[in-house]
Design a protein around this nucleic acid. Structure first.
Length: 760
DNA sequence: ATTCAGACTTGGAAAAATGTTA
DNA sequence: TAACATTTTTCCAAGTCTGAAT
């Protein structure tokens, strides 16, 4: 950020953003940098035994340096020019290469779809042309899909509900009437609940980009106004008490609340905070408070701790009252009417002001996120609806009636200048339909993925650099489930990359490593600055291509310099309607789950063990997608507790065994009914405890394996829920065992529609 | 072709709610 | 019944992708 501003000033006479970007990139301290990276690698090697390393912290430090080490720009020659020359050189070399190495290329056993780390076996099979799937032209596939995606009849026989939304109201009331007449009073309630569950998936979708016909809501709930601190809570500057103006005090409390957080120790955070805080100060304050290090927020911090403690200690009645108030608010603002149905809103509360907490090494961390007022708010609703009323004495910024979008409320946030929205809950029709559609697109990919894979393998040999890069990138996206990797504005966000934005410094080539040939070692920060570390064997041709792409480049140069997400997606679009890079992630995630479930589920095992298998399948996907979490702070202890329980259970078993033995002996002697019964019951008791033990042990295994893996995201966003539902039905496992209430609501469509035979 | 705003999905952490134990 | 552990929900940042403007 600093550096960037500096440059902007110097270079202000010219240059587009992209020029600037390259200038920055191309004049960094190489030696310095690469040394840093080496050190880093060294570290990561030590710390990782598995092929994917999960420690983020190490990486972050060094990535931080990236920004700092940029050197001054010097020459003015056009960037594009340079680029072109570079590429020409490359193309020449490429020709040489392909003619010399191409011939000897034998087809390896490796087909390019070896398992991602720790997934036992998988996509391999997918690559082989399957019997069932012919390679249809994409057009055709599209049609197929559409058929698939249309609501299915079965469950609506009796009611003929497949009609246009317009007709819904009629349907509904008619239905109500029928019920009212038919049912006895006692049944009414239950019936009503049933009716409330609207099966939108049995109705027709909008086709023309229209998202709704009617939309009515009450607008957002604003953050509560700032309550000044009581006088006894003091702020000290340089050891001296200082009463702050309300504005300055509010911002100070944001910092005070966070005192225990690591953020407040970070330089950038402190610097950004202090700068923005000073903007809120009165002139006197501004002239006095010049050094953040001399500020003492301790009492504020304590005050808020006390407050939250007090909240915990509230009496039952008070808590209940609070809960009721919350519920009232939810009832009033938490729902909207969209096309005759009451739907839950996801986030009806406006984000309160506070300090921006970017993730990873974010240049803007600590900046003040300002309070949103009604005047910042754009309302979206239908013309014929009751327009939400702004708070007294205020006006909305704008009121819109745009039914081509799904949001109800929007505002522009001041840190990145991006737009924030209030939208509906995942259980809503509008989200659900889209979600369903996403999986249908992925299923269409399944039908043509063989063809696409064959195609990009062909493209590895292309004469055109652009095509080769595209093909290798796509291979990574497919094989490793990498994200597309859009370009980002440098200095505005943390330095993270995806596939297309990988830089030379992010991969290392090893002709041989760990006994395998042609290994690529990935090490970069992905979304949310989560580290991706992986060593993968690739095909020789890919390897050679990578060498080519890296020739004559600096570590900080783009690996795929002729490629970006827009080029890639345009290409994908041509291969299959609706295909984009992220579809591969969805596809590979879902297909992996399906295969893993098939492979891991043991019919003879009990429910607990089956669930463990499910979780393991889920885990395989999470690993593929690199979904990591920080190990829970209480992890070790919680493992210990579980172990204690297990030990206790084992003792119990010993006891039960002895008792059984005794009973048996008794029975042998007496041979009467009473002792026989006793033996029976002891046997049962033993069995019971053994089962409990088994459950605990399964739980322990599951938890251990899940230490640094986050299952949530894949479960919620990547796995076709119908696969899971089919699995549940097949093995007679309750849906509740794998989906909690929220999840069941979100996946209601899948729960209703998938049967045991569903195949992704 | 490139840039940019906009809209929407995806992501882990943290807070809140709920369950369990001493 | 408080303290602690675990699960669920909320929060909001950070991606992807589209389409319009230039």
């Amino acid at each position: 950020m600093r550096e960037r501003n500096h440059h902007e000033r110097i270079d202000s006479h010219k240059s587009s953003k992209s020029d600037e970007k390259h200038k920055h990139k191309e004049h960094k301290h190489k030696e310095h940098k690469s040394k840093e990276r080496d050190k880093d690698r060294e570290k990561s090697k030590h710390s990782s035994s598995s092929s994917k390393n999960h420690s983020n912290s190490e990486y972050k430090e060094s990535s931080e340096k990236r920004h700092k080490e940029k050197l001054k720009h010097r020459d003015g020659s056009s960037d594009k020019h340079r680029h072109k020359n570079k590429e020409k050189r490359k193309e020449e070399k490429e020709k040489l290469h392909s003619s010399s190495s191409g011939v000897g290329d034998k087809i390896k056993k490796e087909n390019g779809f070896t398992s991602p780390p720790r997934i036992k076996q998988e996509v391999d099979d997918e690559y082989l042309p399957s019997v069932k799937v012919e390679n249809k032209p994409t057009k055709r596939a599209r049609i197929d899909d559409d058929v698939d995606f249309k609501p299915k009849k079965p469950k609506i026989e009796d009611e003929k509900r497949t009609k246009k939304r317009k007709a819904e109201e009629v349907t509904k009331s008619k239905k109500g009437k029928m019920k009212g007449q038919a049912d006895g009073a006692g049944k009414k309630k239950k019936k009503k609940e049933e009716e409330d569950k609207w099966k939108w998936w049995e109705e027709e979708r909008y086709t023309d980009g229209v998202k709704w016909k009617f939309l009515e809501h009450k607008g957002p709930v604003f953050a509560p106004p700032y309550i000044p601190l009581p006088d006894k809570v003091k702020f000290y500057y340089d050891g001296k008490h200082m009463k702050l103006s309300p504005q300055a005090e509010e911002v100070a409390t944001f910092f005070g609340k966070m005192l225990d957080h690591e953020y407040t120790t970070k330089d950038i955070f402190r610097k950004n905070f202090f700068k923005d805080w000073r903007k809120e100060m009165k002139p006197e304050e501004k002239s006095t408070i010049v050094d953040l290090n001399k500020c003492d927020f301790e009492e504020m911090n304590q005050h808020f701790k006390d407050q939250s403690e007090a909240r915990k200690q509230m009496s039952k009645e008070e808590k209940l009252k609070l809960k009721e108030e919350n519920e009232k608010l939810l009832q009033e603002y938490g729902f909207c009417i969209m096309d005759n149905h009451k739907e839950r809103i996801a986030n009806f509360r406006i984000e309160p002001p506070g300090l921006f907490r970017g993730r990873g090494n974010h240049p803007k961390m600590g900046m003040l996120k300002r309070r949103i007022r009604p005047e910042d708010i754009i309302i979206n609703c239908s013309k014929d609806s009751k327009v939400p009323v702004p708070p007294h004495g205020h006006k909305w910024k704008t009121i819109r009636h745009d039914n081509k979008v799904t949001w109800l409320v929007s505002w522009t946030e001041n840190i990145q200048g991006s737009i924030k929205y209030i939208m509906l809950n995942p259980s809503s029709r509008i989200k659900g339909e889209k979600d369903w559609q996403k999986y249908e697109t992925a299923r269409r990919l399944k039908k043509c993925v063989d063809k696409i894979r064959a195609q990009y393998r062909e493209d590895w040999k292309s004469k055109e650099m652009k095509v080769r890069q595209r093909a290798v990138a796509l291979y990574f996206i497919d094989k490793l489930a990498l994200r597309a990797g859009n370009e980002k504005e440098e200095g505005e966000t943390a330095d993270t990359v995806g596939c297309c934005s990988l830089r030379v410094e992010h991969i290392k080539l090893h002709t041989e490593l760990d006994g395998q040939e042609y290994m690529v070692e990935f090490d970069f920060l992905g979304k949310d600055s989560i580290r991706y570390y992986n060593k993968v064997p690739v095909e020789k041709r890919v390897f050679k291509n990578l060498q080519l792409f890296m020739e004559n480049k600096q570590p900080e140069d783009d690996l795929f310099d002729r490629l970006n997400t827009s080029i890639l997606n345009k290409h994908l679009q041509e291969l299959m309607d609706g295909l984009t890079a992220k579809v591969f992630r969805t596809y590979n995630a879902s297909i992996t789950l399906q295969q893993q479930l098939k492979e891991l589920t043991n019919p003879d095992e009990n429910v607990a063990a089956k669930i463990l298998s499910y979780n393991r399948a889920n885990r395989a996907v999470a690993i593929l997608c690199n979904h990591q979490r920080a190990p829970p702070k209480t992890f070790e202890k919680s493992m210990q507790n579980l172990q204690t329980k297990i030990d206790a259970k084992k003792d119990q078993i010993g006891m039960a065994r002895r008792e059984l033995k005794g009973a048996k002996a008794d029975h042998k002697v007496k041979k009467d009914e009473k002792t026989r019964k006793s033996v029976e019951s002891k046997k049962k008791a033993l069995q019971r405890v053994e089962e409990q033990l088994m459950k605990l042990e399964v739980q322990a295994t599951d938890r251990e394996e899940n230490k640094q893996i986050a299952l949530g995201t894949s479960k919620l966003n990547y796995l076709d829920p119908r696969i899971s539902i089919a699995w549940c039905k097949k093995w007679d496992i309750q849906t509740e065992k794998i989906y909690n209430k929220t999840q069941r609501e979100k996946f209601a469509w899948a729960i209703d529609m998938a049967d045991e035979d569903y195949e992704f």
